[in-house]
């Protein structure tokens, strides 16, 4: 069984615990069937084990393909932490309203500074509020279908990009190093969520996966 154990270890690398258990179960089952068939054809136990193992192919290739369809440990952690964050916010109504109030407060402050004659600061606050608003508005919007989720995500990125472009103006290129390092975690989260959405049926999506 050593060869099979090595194969399974490689094939289940970086997969979430549940996914790895699924892989081990189905491959072991397959291996046993192939081994029994080879023994029925007259092979010795050792030969049959080798035939069954060879028929599985390369473990790294299988791992690569498994990672495209089953949750990886990183994705499972993101899913778990997203659920915890959502629960933390939803179970504390004051926190929810505080988060919603943040961009509203920025936009209000922008109007105050505008009327006091500080147009530059007012514009910056307005754009910061605009960039933040999709994140907090999501708490109140009924985003519970894939189509609504898609529309929300497009709007979110358009608003954020518009806020960044307007905020930095012609200096956007000069500050690109800062923008890339700030937006990289957001882009990475978006990419990982898209990957999770592909792997889970819609019925199993938690709310934060729509956003």
């Amino acid at each position: 069984m050593n060869g099979l154990d090595d194969w399974l270890r490689q094939a289940a690398q970086h997969l979430a615990k549940d996914s790895a258990a699924l892989v081990r179960g189905e491959i072991q089952e397959h291996y046993e069937s192939a081994r029994e068939a080879a023994m029925a054809d007259g092979s010795s136990a050792e030969e049959a084990g080798n035939i069954a193992l060879n028929s599985l192919g390369d473990a790294k290739t299988a791992n690569c393909q498994y990672r495209r369809v089953l949750l990886t440990s990183v994705e499972a952690r993101m899913l778990r932490e997203g659920k915890l964050e959502a629960r933390a916010v939803c179970s504390r109504p004051w926190l929810r309203w505080l988060l919603v109030a943040a961009p509203v407060a920025l936009i209000e402050a922008a109007s105050v500074f505008y009327f006091r004659g500080n147009a530059g600061l007012s514009r910056d606050l307005l754009l910061a509020g605009m960039g933040m608003s999709p994140w907090f508005a999501a708490l109140l919007l009924p985003i519970n279908t894939p189509l609504r989720g898609r529309i929300f995500r497009y709007t979110k990125w358009v608003l954020m990009t518009a806020a960044v472009v307007l905020l930095f103006g012609p200096d956007a290129l000069k500050w690109s190093w800062l923008l890339i390092s700030c937006l990289w975690p957001l882009a990475w989260t978006e990419w990982t969520r898209a990957s999770i959405r592909r792997k889970l049926p819609v019925s199993a999506w938690p709310r934060h996966l729509y956003l």
Partner: peptide, 12 residues
Amino acid sequence: FKEGTLYPALHK
């Protein structure tokens, strides 16, 4: 085909 790649295809 290598049978180890059958299951990812089934999951997909």
